[in-house]
């Protein structure tokens, strides 16, 4: 595999494509050797059945710009994004697919970097990338590379988080400062000529979720706050369960650099994307135990209780002045192509 760039031949089904799949993809994703090189992965049911009683199945596409950014890259994002969508259902993530859409002319080294990052992220998240697809489109038909991943996980018996289950009085938590991914991407685009130490929070949440469900299998709802940020997830929760949610401004964890960037640009961290933040809703009598469990996990040391579920509808923020304002759904896209 010595071609310096991706060409249309790498997507035409011929020898070049075969070289790409075996030389760049399979040896990274399945270093111990592929089980079968067929048109599908074949998964052992018996093993899955030892982990739980239902499958969780999800898919997500990744078009982030730029593809490398402080703290992470499109490859790790494509793995962690799907791992997290599985994990927040209470599932143990097991298998991923990887479909690549490559732009003609993409440097092969860039592709290698992304694939290596995917392989590292998969190993960290305890999942195997078992099947995939590669397409090459003419220059201008896509921007560098797009990734789709689908994932299968096994849902732990007795754990059934769902947004419809929220009850007035429930407590809302988050596992750390919000908005870092969106802010990091914005700065990484270089259009603002700003220099910051901001890093994306891209990380797999399966371990943190494991710690949460271990102390609170009756967790009401969990969701990772990606596009649209915390505000969007909470609005989805409130609508699904026909309840209100009251946030406490003073409890919201926001890093000074994110807050400063938002001040400067008129953005709201509540709407900025995250890639390693889970919003957790638990019954009030479990809140202390869940908070302690989250804080004792490396991805949750800055966890906070940020609000509570109320009667009524909509999401409100209680400001430091004791006044309330509505946290509505997003109208404008604050920032396109953040994941």
């Amino acid at each position: 595999m010595t071609d310096p760039t991706v060409t249309l031949a790498h997507g035409n089904g011929g020898r070049a494509m075969q070289d790409l799949i075996t030389g760049v993809l399979v040896n990274q994703f399945q270093p111990q050797g592929p089980t079968v090189l067929e048109d599908q992965a074949r998964l052992p049911l018996a093993e899955l059945l030892t982990l739980g009683d239902r499958l969780a199945f999800t898919t997500d596409s990744f078009v982030v710009d730029p593809i490398f950014f402080p703290g992470s890259d499109i490859g790790a994002l494509a793995v962690n994004g799907t791992v997290n969508d599985l994990a927040v259902s209470g599932a143990i993530p097991c298998y991923l697919t990887c479909a690549l859409i490559l732009e003609e002319g993409l440097p092969m080294d860039t592709l290698r970097r992304v694939v290596e990052s995917m392989a590292r992220a998969a190993q960290q998240a305890g999942v195997t990338i078992v099947t995939g697809d590669t397409k090459v489109v003419p220059r201008g038909g896509a921007d560098k590379l797009f990734i789709n991943t689908a994932g299968i996980g096994v849902m732990r018996s007795g754990v059934t988080p769902a947004a419809t289950q929220l009850q007035p009085g429930d407590v809302v938590l988050v596992n750390g400062p919000i908005g870092n991914h969106g802010a990091a991407i914005l700065v990484a685009r270089g259009e603002l000529a700003l220099e910051t130490d901001l890093q994306s929070d891209c990380q797999p949440l399966h371990g943190l979720v494991e710690a949460i469900v271990a102390v609170c299998p009756e967790v009401r709802a969990m969701r990772d706050a990606t596009r649209g940020g915390l505000a969007t997830v909470l609005n989805e929760f409130a609508d699904s369960a026909q309840v209100g949610i009251r946030l406490l401004e003073e409890q919201l964890p926001v890093e000074a650099a994110v807050e400063g960037l938002c001040e400067l640009l008129g953005l709201d961290p509540l709407y900025l994307a995250n890639e390693g933040k889970v919003v957790v809703v638990v019954p009030p009598d479990r809140a202390a135990a869940v908070l302690a469990a989250m804080r004792s996990h490396p991805l949750g040391t800055h966890s906070q209780i940020i609000g509570e579920v109320t009667q009524g509808s909509g999401v409100y923020l209680k400001t430091g002045f004791g006044t309330e304002r509505i946290i509505d759904r997003l109208v404008d896209d604050q920032l396109p192509r953040i994941c």
Partner: peptide, 24 residues
């Protein structure tokens, strides 16, 4: 724009009473 009076009232809900809670 978000700085317009109507957009601000709409977005932040000022002046609109909180919606009535649904029946228990």
């Amino acid at each position: 724009s978000s700085e317009g009076a109507c957009a601000a009232y709409y977005k932040y809900g000022h002046g609109r009473p909180h919606p009535a809670p649904p029946p228990r």
